[in-house]
Amino acid sequence: MSGEIAITMRNLGKRYGAHEVLRGIDLDVRHGEVTCLIGPSGSGKSTLLRCVAFLEEHDSGIIRIGGAALGFDEGADGARVRLPVGEIARVRRNIGMVFQQFNLWPHMTALGNVAEGLRQVLRLPKREARERAMAHLGRVGLAEKADAYPSQLSGGQQQRVAIARALAMDPKIMLFDEPTSSLDPELTGEVLTVMRDLAAEGMTMLVVTHEIGFAAHVAQHVVFLDQARIALEGRAGEVFRKPWHPRLSQFLETYLDRGASVLLGG
């Protein structure tokens, strides 16, 4: 499985009115790899990720997840057809998503959040859903917080519950949309640790992040987006060792205080 293509994007485009957010994106995400999307704000990296979750609908091009077209496919005559809702949901089942704002449901406990999909989507019996949810909470180190409500958890803990919630559905690919950007600096570590563990277990991950240190140390594949396009992509080591691209070196300089200095220094 490892090394096979998990997600393919071909000539992906997205616009809001006159504003082009994504233009001609060609990208392959491989199984078992961590792919990091970096770039200045407004470069389109979050939109790209949200297109892969089909939370945003792309206007042109095609996204395939495990070979199956997501949302839109080309008909026999080459015309673009929207796939039925059930088909979209089926393809989306391969994906778990973690949001910048956590988006835990405030009226459910940590356990309730993780068990919701198991009960409602997979229709597991109560006990089994509970056991599996507990196991996933344990995996992110929060088994003892199972009965706490989101309002009673720190930001870092909420994000770890959100990761457990996504993992519980047993996705093949995990998407992370700036998972540490709304956390206090001292709380980012616990979330990054969980993500690092996940990467070590061989989870396929597509991560939008400003944590250049994480991208450099954990990612195999780094994609630098700038002005709606992929400006540069490659193996993590290559991209960071030789930031020959003027926009990339400019971008990295703004992150010097966030660990990039170590990398640039060699």
Binding site: A53, A89, F99, N103, E116, V121
Partner: peptide, 14 residues
């Protein structure tokens, strides 16, 4: 919040 609905979509709720 829109994100709460998006999270539910991603988990697969109809």
């Amino acid at each position: 919040p829109k994100g709460h609905v998006e999270a539910a979509l991603c988990v697969g709720l109809d």
